[in-house]
């Protein structure tokens, strides 16, 4: 298993770019082709895709620009990179050659977690709500990596989930010797993403490991559970992970808070449906 972990990390170090969903890219390409498109409209679409968001953040946090590990939101990245750089980034984005229904499911799951994280951050009156939503969007980046870079292992994991009724996470550990949190962490650290994004991505299944960004990590942990419980998108298996005591305590929420928040979330998810339906339509047309 250790040798396999080393091999996985070796491959991650060489990773150039992650593919994303073809319809998202084609929608962006269309936007960019239109002279009247504003940076804000482009940001709105990029913010709905974990791969493109990570790509933009990787670029703006690269040494060349001179402020590594600082920028954690797409809107800031666009302001700093400028329209031309964003344009080039989008036009050179790679896409999945074969889009599978799981790809779309994971994409929707991430979008849902981003929405739920944003709503929780707002309710808790955190200063950096947009950033927490971004962390929510990126939390399962490791799963995209497994799907795109290790398709063989990915199939084995899915088979194990189905046959042994294991959680996706348990199956990852059995097949890979590591799981998507560790893989995501390894990559976003290499890409100089800010620590406030790294911790939630790395520890949303092990909140006790969070050091500086406990609340943010706990929010993503809870958002993940809520979105899975609502059956929005697909996180890789049909089970809902357990809520960790520590996370619940750090957030200081009670049942009444949730009763207040869930209708807000429903509304937001309904809005997102329009977008995801459009993307689905584009994908299978």
């Amino acid at each position: 298993m250790e040798a396999q972990k080393r091999e996985i990390k070796r491959k991650l170090r060489q990773l150039q770019s992650l593919p994303t969903l073809p319809p998202v890219v084609s929608r962006l390409t269309k936007l960019i082709g239109d002279e009247n498109t504003t940076a804000l409209q482009i940001a709105e679409v990029i913010e709905k895709d974990q791969v493109l968001t990570s790509k933009v953040l990787k670029m703006v946090n690269s040494a060349f620009y001179g402020f590594p590990k600082r920028i954690s939101t797409v809107s800031s990245a666009i302001v700093l990179l400028g329209f031309n750089v964003i344009r080039t980034l989008v036009l050179t984005a790679s896409i999945f050659e074969m889009m599978q229904s799981e790809d779309l499911g994971l994409w929707e799951h991430s979008l849902g977690v981003a929405a739920a994280s944003g709503i929780l951050a707002q309710h808790l009156e955190l200063k950096n709500q947009e950033e927490v939503a971004t962390a929510g969007l990126l939390h399962d980046l490791g799963k995209v990596v497994i799907r795109a870079e290790f398709p063989h292992f990915y199939k084995q994991i899915l088979r194990l989930v189905e046959q042994e009724k294991l959680s996706f996470l348990e199956a990852e550990k059995q097949i890979l010797g590591m799981y998507h949190g560790e893989i995501g962490e390894f990559l976003v650290r290499r890409w100089n993403l800010p620590e406030r994004l790294v911790e939630p991505i790395a520890f949303h299944h092990e909140v006790e490991k969070a050091r500086k960004y406990k609340k943010e990590t706990a929010i993503i942990h809870l958002a993940d559970i809520i979105i899975r419980a609502l059956g929005y998108g697909n996180g890789g298996d049909p089970w809902v992970p357990g809520l960790q005591d520590k996370a619940w305590r750090w957030l200081g929420l009670d049942r009444k808070d949730l009763e207040e928040l869930l209708p807000l979330l429903d509304e937001r998810l309904l809005e997102l449906r329009f977008f995801t339906l459009e993307i689905q339509g584009l994908g299978f047309a």
């Binding site: 940076a39 620009y65 001179g66 402020f67 600082r70 302001v79 700093l80 990179l81 400028g82 329209f83």
Partner: peptide
């Protein structure tokens, strides 16, 4: 401080260019 100056330079360039 240098980071903020670099960021401001990027913003100026992008906005004026736009």
């Amino acid at each position: 401080g240098d980071e903020i100056l670099r960021a401001l330079a990027r913003i100026l360039t992008n906005v004026v260019r736009t």
